[in-house]
């Protein structure tokens, strides 16, 4: 089971990035092996639109099973859903704390997009 966490930093003590599509990195944590690696999301920081879809596609390609992030818009939600990836919401915590909360079953699973899309 691998979880992708949107984060502003590069290790377990970095804060969660509330933004899904425009986060700097995703930290992919393997719960069986207790190891992690980063996937870069920089190219999405400058894309005018479709960042959420692209980020979701990358996570599906990386074969994660779930995502922990702050906010998910409608298109990212649809894409992650199509890839059968569960979405959990967390804010104001580090990656390590988010993983602990996840393992204790404290994180809410998003049933729908929790924010609206935005336009230029």
């Amino acid at each position: 089971m691998t979880i992708a966490i949107s984060t502003t930093g590069e290790d377990l003590d970095s804060l969660i990035d509330e933004r899904f599509g425009r986060t700097r990195h995703f930290l992919l944590y393997d719960l069986e092996e207790n190891t992690y690696h980063l996937i870069d999301n920089q190219q999405n920081l400058t894309s005018p639109q479709g960042a959420g879809i692209q980020a979701a596609q990358n996570i599906i390609k990386a074969e994660a099973n779930a995502v922990i992030t702050g906010n998910v818009g409608p298109k990212a939600f649809r894409t992650l859903n199509a890839g059968k990836i569960k979405i959990y919401l967390a804010t104001g915590v580090t990656v390590r704390e988010a993983l602990e909360q996840y393992q204790k079953g404290l994180l809410a699973q998003a049933q729908d997009n929790n924010v609206e899309g935005h336009w230029l």
């Binding site: 894309s47 639109q49 479709g50 960042a51 879809i53 692209q54 979701a56 596609q57 599906i60 298109k75 649809r78 894409t79 199509a82 890839g83």
Partner: peptide, 16 residues
């Protein structure tokens, strides 16, 4: 990003 190809599905986003 109006068309998104996944492993076993293709999503179309008409608004994009």
């Amino acid at each position: 990003g109006a068309i998104s190809c996944l492993k076993d599905n293709v999503l179309v986003f008409p608004e994009l």
